[in-house]
Design a protein around this nucleic acid. Structure first.
Lengths: 349, 349
DNA sequence: AGGGAGGATTGGAACGATCCAGACGAAGTG
DNA sequence: CACTTCGTCTGGATCGTTCCAATCCTCCCT
């Protein structure tokens, strides 16, 4: 931690201390194999003594790479059990660190409806700007649930990025992605319920038009058919809200008497729990409920909500792996990677 | 978005295009008042045409400031309803953007117990390194709940930072901080319950030794005394876990028959709900429960958990405000800022 | 008309690292 | 012994911006 005349030590300082040239110190850091063993050690000792860390700005300027990865963080809707991001973010930061990167968070300025109209906030402008100013080397994009303009733009501008989520709507996409097999996840859930003896298993999911929603629903449909179980009128579609979950469950309970609910999200599943609470039914004893995402709410709500858990830690690792390959100009063999979720069984089933 | 020979435009490119010198373009960006109106407009047009954004690395190298704010993101314990971070993070990113900063996330390498012992992972090393390499201009630190080594170290090294949380254990601390008045929050909760006619109001909180825990508990104690209500044997202390909440509630229900529970956290409150669920009691009808944090779980659990909500958005704004002042060498008048939480009333009370 | 004053603009130097081409020895080869 | 080869190390140029001091221009005053 020693400093000289109040300013942080530079390469030159270290070079003086070790009695070598700047370039040699640089090599000691970046290509140690080029140095003779004793020189290397001498330099390392000097670095240690002075408490030297290379200046990122200077390095970044010269090498044209910041070793930062950009991630847009979207305004999460309150009340939607969307703590997904939390787990993913941790994992992403950890994986990045291991690969020598840091994560830079950014957000888009809110598109306030009552704004002075002229400056239409281009959702892609932020990406463009970060890239042009060499603030980040690459992006991780996460919001591919209903197509996504960023992916197209980034791909067109040859910006390095990896997506969490398949390019559902663009079969020609060539960018790298990692995704979780939602269909297989829901299938796990249905199998689990069938094993427990349920035959009337209802689906509560999202509106048509959500690719992810349709994929998950297909998991329900497939598995029900495979077991020759009825599906007609056992399915509801709506928004990803507590309230919709509650209303849908109430309606289904009155008309179709299902014994189990499989939901497209934990938010909806929590809505179902509300409906049961209102009808004096108990989840797990009278009716089974399964959610999707293994959110914190699922973990703590009594009696525990069975839920499909995405392997977010693994997703993050794979994403950084792909990104790192891309950035170090190694050939990327697999374009996309589909990971399997697991089912966490709790009291609600 | 026009580019010249495949490389991003620089100041010089813009200068050529506008027929002025580099420095003038620089001034157009940083001190527009120095330019004549027509020159300014000419330069701006050139910038627009070329799609120029200043190179951050170069700027950062010259000005010795990265316009990045570092935030350590800790491995959140699963199952603890700690989605606090999520709201805070969003807010912090937004406020930072408005002030011209970005947020850089980092984490400490996990201290794996089975590691080759020698390299003891110094919790402060990461901060030190980021600072020396001028990767960030300042830090926001959040984990001050039981003293915090970083704050001391950062203060000693004159590193700019603002803490979310009071310097409980260090009356001599001179750094800036923003915190939420937990005591007042719990007091709100107790007042609310008293209004509803409760007189036997129990407290379930954390172990002695947590400053925050004692502060919140004091809110309960104060308010109970103010209303001449009994407190003896109505208080339990333990870990911040579901399980402790459940056990404590069960024990209190058997021995003291409280009609309401006030908890130090939503996690504990959810544990209480588990206990009620097991005893066939209903929260809100038979027994009132109030949590702390207004986590997502509190929002979605049936019948809704009344909870003390921290004004995290405001906290983030104030933190960035203080940081910005500090970094732009304006005098910081207030050293600390204590914000008031609110009570969100839901079905559980 | 000459001399300041002050605003507008400019070119050179610097920030701290890496790239590049070349220098220096020591070792190997004909 | 001269010549090449290879491993090691070095100095100058460079990345794109801002700082600094100097210059130019315009306008006003005497």
């Amino acid at each position: 931690m020693a400093e000289r005349n109040g300013r942080a030590p530079t390469l030159a300082t270290v070079a003086d201390e070790a009695g070598v040239s700047r370039q040699t110190v640089s090599n000691a850091l970046n290509s140690p194999h080029l140095l003779r063993a004793d020189t290397l050690e001498r330099v390392q000792r000097a670095i240690e003594t002075l408490g030297y860390s290379p200046n990122r700005a200077a390095r970044s300027l010269r090498t044209r790479s910041s070793h930062l990865i950009g991630l847009r963080i979207d305004p999460a809707a309150e009340g939607t059990a969307n703590a997904l991001m939390d787990r993913f973010l941790h994992s992403l930061v950890d994986s990045s660190r291991d690969a020598g990167y840091h994560v830079l968070l950014f957000s888009s300025p809110a598109e306030e409806p009552g704004e002075t109209g002229a400056a239409a906030p281009d959702p892609v402008a932020v990406y463009s700007d970060l890239l042009r100013s060499t603030a980040v080397d690459a992006f991780v994009i996460t919001d591919t649930y209903r197509g996504n303009p960023q992916a197209g733009w980034l791909e067109a501008h040859q910006a390095p990025f990896v997506a969490f989520g398949r390019p559902w709507d663009d079969p020609d996409a060539t960018h790298a992605w990692v995704d979780v097999d939602g269909r297989a996840g829901v299938s796990l859930a249905v199998e689990h319920l069938v094993e427990r003896g349920h035959t009337r298993i209802a689906w509560i999911g999202w509106q048509r038009g959500s690719f992810i929603g349709e994929d998950r629903r297909a998991g329900w449909l497939d598995t029900m058919h495979a077991h020759h179980l009825p599906t007609s009128r056992l399915s509801a579609r709506g928004d990803d809200t507590l309230d919709f979950g509650r209303r849908a469950a109430r309606a289904l309970l009155e008309s179709e008497r299902p014994t189990a609910f499989v939901c497209a999200s934990d938010t909806i599943a929590m809505g179902v729990l509300h409906a049961l609470d209102g009808a004096d039914l108990r989840a797990g004893r009278d009716i089974a409920v399964v959610g999707f995402d293994d959110s914190i709410a699922a973990q703590v709500v009594p009696p525990g909500l069975t839920s499909v858990r995405q392997p977010l830690e693994q997703v993050a690792i794979e994403i950084i792996g792909l990104l790192d390959k891309r950035l170090s100009h190694q050939p990327v063999l697999e374009q996309g990677l589909l990971l399997s979720p697991t089912l966490v069984v709790r009291g609600s089933s």
